[in-house]
Simulated assay, not measured.
Amino acid sequence: MSKFKFEKLIIWQKAMDFGEDIDKMTIPFPDKEKFNLSSQIRRASDSIALNISEGSIGQSNPEQKKFIGYSIRSLAEVVTCLFKSKRRKYISESEFTKLYNEANHLMNMMSAFRKNIK
């Protein structure tokens, strides 16, 4: 049984899964990226779910919209890091496409969610 409102949100659940996918993707990155690109993309992907949950707790509607906006910005950061990862040949074209499509789906879900906040 869910104790917190955000646990029931599909966008939070998807963001949690996406963060885990990104974390797994960075495992084979070279050591030189440990404190650079791999750290950046993991923090940004974790920030998506973190902001969704923070915005759902006892916040006013404008405040919830603001936190969803932060989540969307973090997702845009992840997408840029995905492009960097592909350009540096840390991930394959197929891995990039899979994660890029997941990111696009999550972006559409979050945008729709934000529009529906009254």
Results as ranks from 00 to 15, higher is better:
residue 1 M to L: 11
residue 3 K to P: 01
residue 3 K to Y: 12
residue 3 K to M: 12
residue 4 F to E: 04
residue 4 F to S: 06
residue 4 F to P: 02
residue 6 F to W: 07
residue 8 K to H: 11
residue 9 L to A: 06
residue 11 I to G: 11
residue 11 I to E: 13
residue 12 W to T: 02
residue 12 W to D: 07
residue 12 W to C: 09
residue 12 W to Y: 05
residue 14 K to Y: 06
residue 15 A to D: 10
residue 15 A to E: 08
residue 15 A to K: 11
residue 15 A to F: 03
residue 16 M to Y: 12
residue 18 F to Q: 01
residue 18 F to M: 09
residue 19 G to S: 12
residue 21 D to L: 08
residue 23 D to A: 06
residue 23 D to R: 10
residue 24 K to I: 07
residue 25 M to C: 07
residue 26 T to I: 11
residue 26 T to P: 09
residue 26 T to W: 06
residue 27 I to H: 15
residue 29 F to N: 01
residue 29 F to V: 00
residue 30 P to R: 07
residue 30 P to M: 01
residue 31 D to V: 01
residue 31 D to Y: 04
residue 31 D to N: 07
residue 32 K to V: 12
residue 33 E to R: 00
residue 33 E to Q: 13
residue 34 K to F: 13
residue 34 K to W: 08
residue 35 F to E: 11
residue 37 L to C: 02
residue 39 S to K: 04
residue 42 R to H: 00
residue 43 R to L: 11
residue 43 R to T: 05
residue 43 R to E: 01
residue 45 S to C: 04
residue 45 S to E: 03
residue 46 D to K: 03
residue 47 S to T: 00
residue 47 S to A: 03
residue 48 I to M: 01
residue 48 I to Y: 01
residue 48 I to Q: 08
residue 49 A to P: 00
residue 49 A to D: 06
residue 51 N to T: 10
residue 51 N to S: 09
residue 51 N to H: 04
residue 53 S to A: 12
residue 53 S to T: 03
residue 55 G to I: 02
residue 55 G to N: 07
residue 56 S to Q: 08
residue 57 I to G: 14
residue 58 G to Q: 15
residue 58 G to M: 12
residue 58 G to L: 01
residue 58 G to E: 06
residue 58 G to I: 03
residue 58 G to H: 06
residue 58 G to F: 05
residue 60 S to I: 11
residue 61 N to H: 11
residue 63 E to V: 15
residue 63 E to A: 14
residue 63 E to I: 14
residue 64 Q to S: 15
residue 65 K to A: 13
residue 66 K to S: 14
residue 69 G to N: 08
residue 70 Y to F: 15
residue 71 S to C: 09
residue 71 S to N: 05
residue 72 I to R: 14
residue 73 R to H: 13
residue 75 L to W: 15
residue 75 L to T: 13
residue 77 E to R: 07
residue 78 V to F: 03
residue 78 V to H: 02
residue 80 T to W: 11
residue 80 T to R: 05
residue 85 S to T: 01
residue 85 S to F: 00
residue 86 K to P: 00
residue 87 R to V: 00
residue 87 R to T: 11
residue 87 R to F: 04
residue 87 R to E: 05
residue 89 K to G: 05
residue 89 K to F: 03
residue 89 K to L: 15
residue 90 Y to T: 13
residue 90 Y to R: 12
residue 92 S to K: 08
residue 92 S to Y: 13
residue 93 E to I: 09
residue 94 S to E: 13
residue 94 S to K: 07
residue 94 S to I: 11
residue 94 S to H: 10
residue 95 E to N: 10
residue 96 F to C: 13
residue 96 F to M: 05
residue 97 T to Y: 04
residue 97 T to H: 06
residue 98 K to Q: 06
residue 100 Y to E: 05
residue 101 N to A: 12
residue 101 N to Y: 12
residue 102 E to W: 02
residue 102 E to S: 09
residue 102 E to K: 04
residue 103 A to I: 03
residue 104 N to D: 10
residue 107 M to K: 05
residue 107 M to E: 14
residue 107 M to P: 06
residue 108 N to Y: 04
residue 108 N to G: 03
residue 111 S to M: 13
residue 113 F to C: 05
residue 113 F to N: 10
residue 115 K to Y: 00
